[in-house]
């Protein structure tokens, strides 16, 4: 579904990724874990088109998306829930969600999009339906993360990318979010996520890549990773 080969990328004269290869298959949740500065976020940003790769290929559903503009990538069904959520704080919950559909339905009436909201987002996050007219900036951290995911879902993605979804959230909320990602997977929507919390990520992912200094140093199923204590202490520094 998503295949990355020999990806070299970075900022300015700084090279962060030095030849990353990875893939996500249909029906999978794949996590990328690694210490700070390993290149996790850079990898996601390169995949979603925010930064341009210097070398290597990114294919989504067999189509080369490397170097394409972000709005083309979103329109092709690869949608990222960015780090820090990047919501529109003074727009309402409803407006934030509607904007999620922009790439596929810029000229559709807001009325038609409301029906999509009722079908695709509110059943998953009922709290957003309750808060629909509230400004996004007034939501709690967990609700904001739900809003960010809901907004991404409005694009009708074929695959979801989540950058640090658990950052700064209470464990119970994180569990709820993870269970949503699993439900989406079971419904046919794979996810790729980056997590600081490697153990939690390994516990609920199908496969895990360990990133270190811009290269993949280990790959395995979530269960494998959990069993491999040395991996955690050595590569992640979180014994």
């Amino acid at each position: 579904m998503l295949e990355v080969e020999g990806l070299v990328s970075g900022y300015g004269s700084v090279t962060v990724l030095r030849g990353v290869a990875m893939r996500v298959e249909p029906g999978e949740i794949v996590s990328i874990v690694g210490a700070n500065g390993a290149g996790k976020s850079t990898l996601l940003r390169t995949i979603s088109g925010l930064i341009r790769a210097r070398e290597g290929r990114i294919r989504f559903h067999g189509v080369d998306i490397g170097g394409k503009a972000m709005h083309h990538i979103v329109a092709s069904g690869l949608v990222q829930v960015p780090e820090g959520r990047q919501l529109f704080p003074t727009l309402t919950v409803n407006e934030n969600l509607l904007l999620g559909a922009f790439a596929r339905a810029a000229w559709q009436s807001r009325h038609a999009l409301r029906r999509d909201l009722e079908k695709q987002v509110y059943p998953i996050f009922p709290i957003l339906a309750e808060r629909r007219d509230q400004l996004a900036g007034t939501l709690s951290g967990g609700q904001q993360q739900m809003l960010a995911i809901g907004r991404a879902l409005m694009a009708r993605p074929r695959m979801l990318i989540l950058d640090e979804p658990s950052l700064g959230l209470a464990p119970l909320v994180v569990e709820e979010l993870f269970s949503v990602v699993q439900r989406l997977r079971n419904g046919g929507m794979p996810s790729l996520l980056v997590e600081q919390n490697a153990r939690a990520a390994a516990a609920f992912s199908d496969r895990v890549y360990v990133l270190r200094q811009g290269t993949v140093v280990a790959e395995g199923t979530g269960a494998d990773m959990l069993r491999n204590e040395t991996l955690f202490s050595e590569y992640l520094g979180t014994a």
Binding site: A75, V81, P82, Q86, L91, L98, L99, G100, F102, L113
Partner: peptide, 25 residues
């Protein structure tokens, strides 16, 4: 206030990066 296109223009003002992630050109 009533069109998604106009709302998208407002969203660029509010959070340019967020707008890019949503797929707004």
């Amino acid at each position: 206030n009533r069109t998604l296109f106009g709302l998208a223009m407002r969203s660029c003002a509010e959070n340019r990066l967020g707008a890019e992630f949503v797929g707004i050109n």
